[in-house]
Nucleic acid binder design. Structure first.
Lengths: 252, 252
DNA sequence: GGCGACGTGGAGGATTCCCTCCGACTCGTC
DNA sequence: GACGAGTCGGAGGGAATCCTCCACGTCGCC
């Protein structure tokens, strides 16, 4: 990983940004034959879907089945379940890599903070498999959060925003990380109403902003109670197990 | 369920508050013999623990094993996995029942809102099995959110708080529910640093409060980066599977 | 203390999943 | 078109899990 840049969002999320645009040529990750690469792609897609639904322990056989490949193909590409998780992690990370540049280009420190919060929340919300993957990564590879480059950037942003009088003085970069994780968790609970999290993020930002009176209008509209119910409890189309219909019926 | 009171937090969370202090005497839930009741208790405790760790799909045999009972005992008490989930749900709900009275006793509408947010968030954070249980409940029993009594209470609170000029005008009761769910999710990610969520809740409340300048000090202290990392990715003491040590080593 | 009903534990068949091994197939090249 | 290396798919042993059934143990009442 010589040509990778290790970044960290407040110590929790490690970002690997490639200098070349090629997807990780090392690691034996890139099979040569065309069909092999396509199979790998399909495996990754299905893995992400299934992990989003069933967690990191999703059945590997099922993933292979849905990707229309044999189990052996899966094991050849990802000898261990953790290798699969790592692959998904790296892909997600690559998607996030551009955020750093956007932040650097922000006109003010506060704008940078807004951008940081929004982009990272967006990233978290976009992929419902991400929480499972991140959680697992922390178990697999606990030391990966060591590089604190990105965190340093955010910390600098925080300091400048405070000096500008744009950010309340009693929070720090880690608080922001916690907040963005929190907002991002709204995606976990079922992506249904896209963009609803922006309302909540706006409220959070209003809780951080100075002067406190300077509030923009909330984006979007509030959810109806029914929509909230559907959104919070990820109502996926397929019940987790086929045999779920019986039992208890009219009960409580 | 004649003597139960069905309440709803913004359509998502149903509260059952018993008028008598006895735990659900109907439903065949209460075995007569002492040892039987103790076994049931122990099953519930272990089930909660294991579901918190492994999700709703936690092994039933393992639950029985840890509770030091045979599998049959588990199945006798909870013929279906969903019956077990329902039992855990009812118990958690009972713990929440007092919140309504507290809210009613609040001196101002805003105080009621603060209380609502704090108590419900606390409830969510306290039990790491809860998110799994709630999610599953929504699949099992989608109609249970019908009673909107509690939601009506909150909606009334919101209206009064707005009239008092204590709550910003562009949010509604559902927004509050989303926010409290969001804050509560901080517990999901590993309960480690108890009370950290109060900081984030305070920030959220500041984003809601009017006049906007009236901010109390944030409770607690910010997390160190290392602590955040540990807290967000639920670093439980035991890896999910025993065989997790090998693979990938120094790699990325 | 004894009896009966209630409750218990664990064996066991069916299913699913993990992971490996090997014969068959396909891509890319000559 | 043919060849070979690379790739594929599925069979199959082992383990875990689900859930049922039935002989045995224990509680509580008499």
């Amino acid at each position: 990983m010589e040509d990778s840049l290790r970044l960290v969002i407040a110590g929790g999320l490690t970002i690997v940004s490639m200098t070349s645009s090629e997807p990780t040529p090392q690691d034996g990750a890139q099979p040569r034959r065309r069909d092999a690469r396509q199979n790998r792609e399909r495996l990754i897609v299905e893995a992400r879907t299934l992990i989003a639904q069933n967690g990191v322990d999703a059945s590997l056989e099922e993933i292979a089945r849905r990707a229309d490949v044999g189990v052996a193909t899966l094991y050849r590409n990802f000898p261990t379940r953790d290798d699969l998780v790592r692959a998904l992690y790296d892909i997600a990370l690559a998607e996030l890599a551009t955020v750093r540049d956007e932040i650097a280009a922000a006109p003010t420190a506060w704008a940078g903070i807004e951008l940081y919060m929004e982009r990272v929340a967006e990233w978290l919300v976009a992929d419902p498999a991400l929480p499972h993957i991140l959680k697992r990564m922390e178990v697999i590879d606990p030391g990966s959060g060591k590089g604190t480059e990105f965190q340093a950037v955010i910390a600098g942003l925080v300091a400048r925003a405070k000096k500008d009088g744009a950010l309340r003085a009693d929070v720090d970069a880690v608080d922001l990380a916690v907040l963005v994780t929190m907002v991002g968790s709204l995606g976990t609970h079922g992506g249904g109403h896209t963009g609803q999290w922006r309302r909540q993020l706006a409220i959070v930002l209003d809780g951080l902003r100075l002067p406190a009176t300077d509030r923009p209008r909330l984006p979007g509209r509030p959810l109806a109670a029914r929509e909230f119910q559907a959104a919070v409890h990820g109502v996926t189309r397929r019940a987790k197990r086929a045999a779920s219909g019986r039992a208890a019926g009219s009960g409580a």
